[in-house]
Design a protein around this nucleic acid. Structure first.
Length: 570
DNA sequence: GCCGTTTTCGGCCCGACTGTTTTCAGTCG
C-alpha cells in the first residue's frame, strides 16, 4: 500500500509551496488530493494500473502524472527540486502556534533560520522584532509557542480530553446565562487523539460567559479573549476554545465547530450549489442574505437536503453523498452495548474480584461481563497456569449462582512466536470464548507476524482476536502485519476482531474497522479493564465503531444473550 | 492544481482575533 506514502509526499509539497508563496489554491489542491488518497479504501497502485486515477475526485492530469512517477520510480523529481529550494526542516517551524507560511518564509529569507532551536536562539536575542510584520509581542509569543509545543507535543489521548471536557461542561452549566452547552470539534467526533477542546455555548450575554469561563479553577493562561471566542490553556497543557453564539445560531455553530474541516468544506460547496450560504451563524440565501435555518443541527442538514449525519461520521469519507441519497448506515449507539467481553480479574493482573466485576457490570446495566485473564506464559501479568485456570472457571460457575448477570469464562490466550497457543486444546475447549493475543516478540517480519496470527486464528477454539495490530498510541507503533489478510482469514474462520477500547489502544482503529465491516467481518468491543474504573472506557470503543460506520449487526456486544451464546457455540 | 446545473476560464469556504498597522495582513480553526 503506497497510499500513505503518496499522501505524505503531497502534504509535504503543499507545505513547501505555501512557504514559497505559491497560489493558495494550488496548495489546497495538493492538500485535498493528499487527504483523499489517505482515506482511500483501495490500493492506489491498483487504481493506477487500471488507469483510473483521474476518477478520484481532486486528482487531475498533473497529479495523476506525479502519482505515476512515484509508483514507477519510487520518487518525485518535483519534490526533490522543491527540497533543494527550501530545506525540509523549516516546514516544522509552522507547527509553532502563531507561525504560518508567511512569517516562516520571512524568518528563513532574512535570518536563515531553519530549525526550532535556531528560532528560539534568535528570539531570545531579540532579533525577530525588527523584521517586517514582526514586533516585540510576536517575538514573545513565538517563544511561548515553542515552550508550549515542547511541553505538550501536540495531542492527548481522547480519554484525557473527554474528562477535561466533561468537567468544563459541568462547570459552565452553573452559569445561568448559558442556554445551550455542547462539546464540539474533534472531541465531539471522538477522534483517538485530541489537539484542543472546543466548547460551544449559546447565550444572550456572551461577556458573562467569557468572564465566568476564564475563572475556571484549572485555567493556567488566557491566550485570547473576545466576545465570541476565548482560548485558554489548562494546567495540564490542553488548550480549550470557547465560542459563544446567539440561540438562533446554535445549531449552525455546532455544525461548523464540530467539523471536520474537510466535511464542512464539502457542506459549504453543497450549499453554494443550492443557492445558499452556510456559516457559523446559520444557513442564508446567497443573494438576499435571508436567514433560512440554524437553530439546530438537524435543521441545517435538512435545509441542505441531507439526512442528519452523526458527528463521528463527519470526516468526508463519503458520508455526505450517502446522506444526499438517504442511505446513511444506522450506526451503533452508545446505549446499544449489552456487556463487555474483555475484563481482567484478580486471578491475573486485574485488581477486582470476579464477583465485584459482575456486580459492577450489573450496575452499568449490562447483561453480561466476560472475564478474560492472561494465559500461563505471560508471567509479568501473572498469567494463569492450566491448573489455576480450571479453578478460576469453577469459581466463575459458582459465583454465577449468586448474581443476576451472565459471567462468561474466557481467556486472553497468548499467541506464541510460532503461532501456537499458550493453552492446550483440552483446556481451550472449557472456555465460553477464547481471545488470542500477541504480547511478546513484536518485532517479526510482516510475513512472519501475519502467518503467526493466521495460524492462531485457524485454531478451532479461537473466537476473538484481541487488539489486532498491537499499537499503543503515542508509545508503540503497530507491529508489521498484513491487516487485510487478517480480516479475510477472520471471515473464513468465523473469528471476531476486537475493537479494544483501552484509551491508548483503540485497536482496531476506525479505518480498519470500516474495512473489516465492508469485508463481512463481525467485531467485539472489549475494554481490557484491569480495574472496575476502567470499565467506563467502553464508550471509546463504541466511538471507534461509530467512526468505522459499524451498525448493530456488526458488533457482537449488541446481540441478545441468546444470540451471543449461539454465535459462540460453533 | 482542479473543475463545470451560468463557466474549458475564472472561480476555488468563511469569519474572528491579534499585532502591527493607520486600514490590513497573517493566522487559526
Amino acid at each position: 500500500m503506497k497510499n500513505q506514502e503518496i499522501s505524505n509526499i503531497f502534504y509535504e509539497i503543499a507545505d513547501l509551496l505555501e512557504i514559497k508563496g505559491e497560489m493558495p489554491f494550488k496548495v489546497r489542491a495538493y492538500r485535498r488530493a493528499a487527504q483523499r488518497i489517505e482515506t482511500l479504501e483501495d490500493d492506489i497502485e491498483e487504481i493506477y494500473r487500471e488507469g483510473k486515477l483521474r476518477e478520484i475526485p481532486g486528482i487531475g492530469e498533473a497529479l495523476a502524472k506525479k502519482i505515476g512517477e512515484i509508483i514507477e520510480t519510487g520518487k518525485l523529481e518535483y519534490l526533490e527540486k522543491l527540497r533543494r529550494e527550501i530545506p525540509k526542516s523549516i516546514v516544522g517551524l509552522m507547527s509553532i502556534p502563531g507561525l504560518g507560511p508567511k512569517k516562516t518564509a520571512v524568518l528563513y529569507k532574512k535570518l536563515g533560520i531553519e530549525s526550532i532551536e535556531e528560532l528560539k536562539k534568535a528570539a531570545e536575542q531579540g532579533k525577530l522584532r525588527d523584521l517586517d510584520g514582526f514586533g516585540e509581542v510576536t517575538e514573545r509569543n513565538i517563544l511561548r509557542g515553542i515552550e508550549m509545543l515542547q511541553r505538550s507535543m501536540g495531542r492527548v489521548l481522547l480519554s484525557i480530553a473527554f474528562e477535561d471536557g466533561s468537567h468544563l461542561v459541568d462547570y459552565l452549566k452553573k452559569n445561568s446565562d448559558a442556554l445551550n452547552i455542547s462539546i464540539a470539534g474533534s472531541l465531539r467526533r471522538m477522534k483517538e487523539t485530541i489537539g484542543d477542546i472546543d466548547i460551544l455555548v449559546s447565550s444572550l450575554k456572551p461577556e458573562s460567559i467569557m468572564d465566568f469561563f476564564v475563572k475556571y479553577q484549572d485555567v493556567d493562561q488566557i491566550l485570547v479573549k473576545g466576545s465570541t471566542k476565548t482560548s485558554v490553556v489548562l494546567r495540564d497543557g490542553l488548550q480549550v476554545d470557547l465560542r459563544v453564539v446567539k440561540p438562533e445560531s446554535f445549531g449552525a455553530a455546532l455544525q461548523y465547530f464540530t467539523g471536520s474541516k474537510e466535511h464542512n468544506i464539502q457542506i459549504r460547496n453543497l450549499a453554494i450549489k443550492r443557492g445558499l450560504k452556510v456559516n457559523e451563524y446559520g444557513v442564508f440565501e446567497k443573494d438576499s442574505d435571508k436567514y433560512v435555518a440554524g437553530k439546530t443541527e438537524e435543521e441545517v442538514y435538512k435545509t441542505l437536503g441531507l439526512q442528519y449525519i452523526e458527528p463521528e461520521m463527519r470526516e468526508n469519507r463519503g458520508e455526505i453523498e450517502l446522506a444526499q441519497k438517504n442511505k446513511l448506515p444506522h450506526i451503533v449507539g452508545y446505549d446499544d452495548i449489552k456487556g463487555d467481553f474483555h475484563i481482567h480479574s484478580q486471578w491475573s493482573d486485574g485488581t477486582a474480584s470476579i464477583e465485584e466485576i459482575a456486580r459492577y457490570g450489573k450496575k452499568l446495566g449490562y447483561e453480561f461481563v466476560g472475564i478474560a485473564d492472561h494465559s500461563a506464559s505471560l508471567k509479568v501479568a501473572r498469567g494463569l497456569s492450566e491448573e489455576r485456570v480450571m479453578k478460576k472457571i469453577e469459581e466463575i460457575r459458582r459465583i454465577q449462582e449468586k448474581v443476576d448477570i451472565k459471567i462468561f469464562a474466557a481467556t486472553e490466550c497468548d499467541i506464541k512466536p510460532d503461532g501456537s497457543l499458550d493453552y492446550s486444546n483440552s483446556i481451550l475447549k472449557e472456555f465460553d470464548y477464547v481471545y488470542a493475543a500477541i504480547h511478546t516478540k513484536f518485532k517479526m517480519s510482516r510475513k512472519e507476524m501475519t502467518e503467526r496470527i493466521i495460524k492462531a486464528m485457524e485454531n478451532e477454539y479461537v473466537t476473538f482476536l484481541a487488539h489486532p495490530t498491537g499499537r499503543l498510541i503515542g508509545r508503540r507503533d503497530a507491529y508489521e502485519v498484513d491487516v487485510e489478510r487478517l480480516v479475510d482469514v477472520a471471515r473464513e474462520n468465523n473469528v471476531f476482531l476486537e475493537i479494544n477500547a483501552f484509551p491508548d489502544r483503540l485497536d482496531l482503529n476506525d479505518i480498519y474497522a470500516k474495512m473489516a465491516k465492508e469485508r463481512g467481518v463481525k467485531m467485539v468491543i472489549g475494554t481490557d479493564s484491569h480495574s472496575l474504573d476502567h470499565m467506563r472506557f467502553i464508550k471509546f470503543g463504541i466511538a471507534v465503531a461509530r467512526r468505522g460506520w459499524l451498525e448493530k449487526g456488526d458488533v457482537l456486544n449488541t446481540y441478545s444473550l441468546k444470540d451471543i451464546e449461539k454465535a459462540l457455540s460453533r
